[in-house]
Design a protein around this nucleic acid. Structure first.
Lengths: 328, 328
DNA sequence: CTAGGTGCAAATAATTTGCAGAGGC
DNA sequence: GCCTCTGCAAATTATTTGCACCTAG
């Protein structure tokens, strides 16, 4: 099992601050812990290591960590703040159990999109949003043991990013294979075939990566969804592949549908990749966005070429007709 | 302009508590104010009326109001709590401006639905959810005067509930008129015509009510959306009316589509009506749900009747055939 | 007359700050 | 040596509580 990447503290240190042993002790104790610590929890932890560190220093260090981007201050309405990791840990929302006071993390692109829409409709520039669901967690309700957390949100995010990418890749493969089958123009068919091949290959890479991730932490597979995103449940090309099933789709239309799909997909992955804090899931999204961009360009080039060739053929036919009628 | 309905304090008073002049002063001062007051804001307000009321009493009364359902405690992450009206004031989410510290209210059925889905997927029993969008409001960003709030959330909620109901009614009218036009069976046609008439009539009632609401407070019309709900933008029957445009829809199928629409619509209005705290918008939703339920029952009765009549006709035809072949 | 309600002052709880001394660069 | 970090104790802020007294039912 992988050790989570630790931040390079020297690099992150805010300008004009210097190293200190005590601070290191506090930061390390914080990073070693998971979940959401209150200042007091942290003081208790520290007390086990160094009796001589004062409460004030813990508060000051907490503030320092927030500035340095190592920690985020969160408010669960308890009348005091808690702190969570923020280094390579995507922003997320919370489920908060009022019974055991545990909190669980999730992310929803769908909710984020709606929140953005509301903000826009109200002329509001959103900088940050908080979504908290208060209630009772499964463990508390059923009395069974808590479902063994274990995996970090960062890993779950990577897992879900990969799952979404794989679903998209699969639907893309389906789309391009079908398009190649129905294409009449030889060049167009070649493009679709090439893209299908690429999707196939990339799908392999993604699946290997997914298996690798699971090997690093086998608990990942059974853990519940972290990133909720309806749009990609069946892959972003699913709608396009569906459209191809209609009667009488010609090459130009197939290209158009492909362009629409790649554009939507590129936009989605880029946008979400950029949104998240530095993390493996973010990387996956951005790489994927890049891939989609390349495909998009290829399709557009091919589309333009096809339109041009059709025009030339038409012009040639016109010229021929003119010659024929002249010679008559 | 209407004075907002004041709670009947005697009725709301929690069991085993008695009337008190001081408490009345505090509660009235709170109710007279709009927006989100901190305990301190309220103390300042009170000081203008009665110097002799202590801070502790204000805190105690605030607690009392929360228990009595007159106020809700909200946390905007400022390190202290604020209080908002809750009597006849629907639960909602917040946009919070970090520049002017003002907060704006909104509600989104869409977000609520997604939140519920997430909770369910995680085996979590949600009791309450918080959605807060932090950022900069339009007034602060553009430097222009704040867009003159004025109308209360309760009124905006009623406005939006009416708008959704009207859109649904309109699409319902469209649906039933079209269904009546294409119906072959005379009885079926009569049912559709009757429903179309009812929709027409009810639409009139709703529109009158809407105009009345605007007359009570003309600012309402220009105010931004409070309740966001995508599904109903074009009315809940829009999809059904669309389906009727397909070729070869017979009466039975039209009835089925109608049943699907009324059921969806009834479920929506009931569900959301029940969710909101007592308020005019809630009333509108619940009345509407009732209406839809009646229609639904009528359609189901008619559907069963039609199926039965067809069976009888088939049986009669079979018997006739049998007689014919026997006599041969 | 008795269970609340109220004022006042003191208690709590989380967090911040002033200041003098310690320590990194 | 300078500037930052640290401990300690005191201050601040929001909220609660103990207690003696007051007042509605």
């Amino acid at each position: 099992m992988r050790t989570p990447a630790l931040p390079d503290l020297d690099r992150l240190r805010p300008a004009g601050t210097k190293r200190s042993t005590k601070r290191d002790v506090i930061v390390n104790a914080f990073l070693r812990q998971e979940g959401h610590l209150s200042a007091d929890d942290l003081v208790d932890l520290i007390r086990g290591e160094d009796q001589r560190i004062s409460r004030a220093t813990v508060y000051r260090t907490l503030q320092w960590m927030v500035e340095a981007g190592i920690a985020r201050k969160v408010d669960f309405g308890e009348g005091r703040f808690r702190f969570e990791h923020s280094y390579r840990h995507p922003r997320h929302f919370h489920l908060i159990c009022k019974t055991c006071n545990q909190s669980y993390e999730f992310l929803s692109s769908d909710i984020e999109a709606l929140v953005e829409e509301v903000a826009q409709a109200r002329g509001f520039t959103a900088r940050q949003s908080v979504v908290q669901i208060y209630g009772t967690c499964e463990a508390c309700r059923t009395g069974r043991a808590p479902a063994k957390g274990g995996a970090t949100s960062e890993m779950l995010f990577a897992r879900d990013a990969l799952r979404i990418a794989i679903a998209t890749e699969r639907s893309g493969l389906d789309f391009y294979s079908r398009a190649a089958r129905i294409a009449k123009d030889a060049r167009g068919r070649a493009v679709f075939e090439r893209l299908a091949e690429e999707e196939q290959e990339h799908l392999g890479t993604l699946e290997t990566r997914y298996k690798q991730l699971l090997k690093e932490d086998p608990r990942l597979e059974s853990q519940p969804t972290f990133l909720f995103f309806k749009g990609a449940a069946n892959g972003l090309f699913a709608k396009g592949a569906e459209d191809l099933r209609r009667e009488g789709i010609d090459d130009l239309e197939a290209l158009k549908i492909g362009i629409r799909c790649e554009r939507g997909s590129h936009r989605f992955f880029k946008r979400y990749g950029e949104r998240f804090e530095d993390s493996e899931g973010k990387q996956i999204f951005l790489e994927f966005a890049e891939e989609e961009r390349a495909h998009l360009e290829l399709l557009i080039r091919e589309y333009r070429g096809l339109v041009k060739r059709r025009q030339q053929r038409k012009a040639a036919a016109g010229a021929k007709r003119a010659r024929t009628s002249a010679s008559r």
